[in-house]
Simulated assay, not measured.
Amino acid sequence: MPLIPMTDSLLRVRDLSVRFRLPEGEVTAVDHVSFDVAPGEVLGIVGESGSGKSQILFSLMGLLAGNGRVSGAAHFAGQDLLAMSPRALDHVRGVAMSMIFQDPMTSLSPYKRVGDQLAEGLIVHKGLSRRDAGREAVRMLDRVRIPDAARRARSYPHEFSGGMRQRVMIAMALLVKPRLLLADEPTTALDVTIQAQIIDILAELAREIGTAIIFVTHDLGVVARLCDRVIVLYGGRIMEEGPAAPLFAAPAHPYAKGLLHATPRIAAPLTPRLETIAGAPRAGGAMLPGCPFAPRCDQRIDICQTTPPPLKAIAPGRLAACHLTGETA
């Protein structure tokens, strides 16, 4: 499979597949996905619900459900995350990799003060004293713009709003200064004003610390604002990949075009109705013999339903998996 060449990649994922055993049979959630992430880069992974976005992150973090199995390779700083023992992976997760989840209440203990929860990671993984860890926790809460951080560090999660709890999760994830941050739709449940603030915080802190980010979302507006490069995922496969600006300006794959055309635009002229993609999203199940998007594609030809399209270079730095797109030399 051709890949966009990356120099000094921090993360190199090759042929990543995720499958789940269910009573009715095996379901494929991610199908032979490959990509690189460079230090300091923000990579967005977009697609409808059920496209496999979150399962990529869970597999990298070793957090798949018990009935899931993963294959392929994911080399992070020279180590294959998928081949690590649980103990070794736990150390990497605590020091070099962090994750922000969609719902912060599932990751914050309701019985512990916020400051204590932040400090715990520094005590366990960095060997700081409780006093020094507490000071660092307050400093990071202040950096993610939580007012009166020293006082709020003594509060419990239920005393924070949804937006503030998400900022606490960002502070927790960045406190150990990870080399790689995985963000699973962290702004989905927030209003647009809080979304914008959190995106700015992530971008600012990532620039300062040099952290690489994989940002999973279905919100193309968030991706356009935050991400350097984008992967468009459908049915567990990469449909298109490339730098954010040219991909959004001229998407090559019919699915990427459909996603963009279905996104409301304030500056666009008024139309009778918002464009949609016909049919329902494909979420797992037996893999189709051809392109997974073929049943919903209004441009499909016979080969689309019988032969999987290869992921090929269509322009410098851009890839697409479509029989209708031209391949560059």
Rank of each mutant, 00 (worst) to 15 (best):
A173D: 11
L82Y: 11
R135K: 14
F293V: 02
H323I: 02
A73W: 03
P157T: 15
A294F: 03
V176K: 07
R69G: 04
C297G: 02
D15W: 05
S34P: 00
L57Y: 03
E136P: 01
V30K: 12
E185W: 03
G290Q: 09
G44E: 00
H75G: 02
L22M: 15
L182P: 04
P157Y: 11
L175C: 04
P272D: 13
A29H: 12
S34Q: 02
L260V: 01
R229C: 01
E241D: 06
R300Q: 01
R151V: 13
Y156D: 10
T263Q: 08
V232I: 09
L118M: 11
L118E: 09
I209R: 10
I4N: 04
I198M: 10
Q166R: 07
L181M: 12
L64S: 05
T306N: 06
K126Q: 15
G134Y: 06
Q117H: 07
P186T: 06
R130H: 11
A65C: 03
R225I: 01
P104C: 05
Y255M: 02
S54M: 06
A65Q: 13
G121N: 06
M239Q: 13
Q102E: 09
D184F: 07
G40C: 04
I209E: 08
M105E: 03
V176I: 06
V95Q: 13
L259M: 01
H32I: 00
V42A: 06
F215Y: 13
D148E: 15
G52S: 10
R130E: 13
P308I: 01
I238T: 14
M140P: 04
R318K: 09
P264Q: 13
I277W: 08
A137S: 13
L270H: 11
M61H: 09
E159L: 12
T328D: 09
H91P: 00
G25F: 11
D228V: 01
D132W: 00
M239D: 03
F160Q: 10
